[in-house]
Design a protein around this nucleic acid. Structure first.
Lengths: 339, 339
DNA sequence: TTGTATGCGTTATCAC
DNA sequence: GTGATAACGCATACAA
């Protein structure tokens, strides 16, 4: 029943040539083998259903034609899709691993994946913040042995990096909202210490300050939909005063906040405006559609992979543009509103 | 700069033992090596930053400790998450590939991935049509050489399979909706030949028939949000008569349909009820929340992986339960409604 | 317990 | 062009 998978030897034998010739015919520089033997080998291969053993190929050549993609949360498909597309166009296979936002797991995964000797490692959304010396060391070792590293959204390390300017983008959003007539803001931010959250919060506040406005309430919450829901509910309970807009530092939280508003009998966009960040697909599914900052996730995946595959030890930082998209969740303020 | 990655030999030399001992200390049955040499080897390994070359390990042992996950659309994260969790608990690494719903790509990917000699291959998602002899042959060959195969949602092939009863679930949904008072239905189905779509459509119709009701309009559309939007728009233009509910064979289409309704100045759930299938996260983000059939995606991933890893050549079909969830997009019909 | 020798499936280096 | 033969990095049967 369970036979062995056919090897190159089997194919060679079947075709009546040496293993070396078979190898050349199937993978190597095709030009050095006679037309006749070539077709004999190919025929034998298909007849036996031969598929080259990539592991063996890898140990022999030293290259695996593989890229490791490490993400924190598998829930952003577009990034991965972009990266995969580029990799496959280059004839590389992508291995994905998910860290679940655990730095420990991340370290473990990087270490394990290194064992596959991938041509490149792409680390997305990692917060290689402060206590991550081990990870940095691991990456350095990997790079020293010829591996390529690309980072996504974590500028500051000596690797090719693609990033967006969270701070600036949030600033733009704040200004756009003030222009629309909003004056009293509350913010739902992520857990303390999370850089993305901090940058967006700081940027938003900076934008307001420029226009002479200040953030009123600010609540910390999980980076999740439930986090947004809970924080919004608490905010409502504690009294919002004259707040006319809530900015959640990501769309997922914003959607949760909108749900909390409806649960409290309020209508998002009318009774209280809501804005988010990321422009995930839910942002347009939701009613009213969510004002947010569009982040080119897919392009980030593409550029990150390109960075990783670019021959050189490319350490440039690619800043990708973001875009404020104003939708119905933040209608233009024309009349007095009663919170 | 680009040194070589340290090998087992290097570690052995550093520790002053043979390569065999180093191997045993690092991977093999740890108990057969003296405490002292063990620690010497471990120390040497960490000092050199040694990470075993998994490719070499694989060619030596014949096993890769790897599972290949093939999905049609990376957009369903939960399935993958479930599968990955199980695999990692078993010490296996998961390789993911995306087919983009192209049968050709699917075939190509299966063939390529076979080259990695994964312990198992999991194929998720429905396939278009039945001209897939080559794929079946490819899988058979893989299985003959000791590979495990598990399928998701396409019963009928001689492999372990996890599935849901689309037909029956749609039937349940139809009955529940009739019970809620709906009588005149339209259906947005997927492309012809797509089995999932057909099963859901047939089941829905069967459910209606049981209660003496018939499907009015039925439109074909892409399995996407835009597909749902377009089909719904067309339906509205062509006149819906007395239709009081639109069933889209998946949530993505349903969300698109809801958007189309709003674009036409109608209020989903009030002017026209909407139901979907899958219970994706958007189903609860949307307003009104979408009535749908809850599919245990994550569990499917878990069970599929378990099936694939279960020692035997397990060909059982695991049917997972679904659940009709009635939400505000299909309010109970109490009064006369004017379409 | 430890080391030597051999094999895993390929590719690469030689000769021929 | 083609075929022996030696690598690649690791695991294991066998000896010691």
């Amino acid at each position: 029943m369970t036979e062995q998978a056919p090897t190159l030897r089997d194919v060679a034998a079947e075709a009546g040539v040496s293993a070396a010739t078979a190898s050349r015919a199937l993978n190597g520089s095709t030009r050095n083998v006679s037309e006749e033997k070539l077709s004999r080998v190919v025929q034998a291969a298909t007849k036996l259903g031969y598929v080259p053993n990539l592991s063996a190929q890898a140990t022999a050549t030293g290259s695996t034609k593989t890229v490791a993609l490490i993400v924190h949360d598998i829930a952003d498909p577009y990034f991965a899709a972009g990266a995969i597309e580029v990799a496959e166009a280059a004839g590389l296979t992508v291995t994905m691993a998910v860290t679940d936002r655990s730095p420990d797991r991340e370290l473990h995964i990087v270490s394990t994946l290194r064992g596959y000797r991938p041509d490149a490692i792409i680390l997305a959304g990692s917060r290689i913040g402060d206590n991550q010396d081990t990870l940095v060391e691991e990456l350095r070792a990997y790079q020293d042995t010829g591996g390529r590293v690309a980072l996504v959204s974590q500028p500051g390390l000596p690797y090719g990096t693609v990033a967006i300017d969270n701070r600036r983008a949030a600033e733009d959003l704040a200004i756009a909202l003030v222009t629309r007539g909003y004056r009293r803001f509350a913010v739902l931010r992520g857990p303390a210490g999370l850089r993305t959250s901090n940058d967006r919060f700081d940027g938003f506040r900076a934008g307001l300050t420029q226009t002479g406005v200040e953030v009123g309430h600010a609540a910390e919450a999980d980076f999740t939909e439930d986090g947004g829901h809970t924080a919004m509910t608490d905010l409502l309970r504690s009294g919002l005063g004259a707040t006319d807009l809530v900015f959640a530092v990501n769309d997922v939280m914003a959607v949760g906040a909108m749900r909390a508003l409806r649960d409290a009998g309020l209508v998002p966009g009318r009774d209280l405006a809501v804005a988010g960040f990321d422009d995930i697909s839910a942002a347009t599914d939701v009613t009213p559609a969510l004002t947010t900052v569009q982040v080119p996730t897919r392009t980030m995946g593409v550029r990150a992979m390109e960075l990783a595959l670019s021959g050189e030890d490319n350490r440039e930082v690619v800043w990708l543009p973001t875009n404020v998209v104003l939708r119905e969740s933040t209608p233009r303020v024309t009349t007095n509103r009663t919170p």
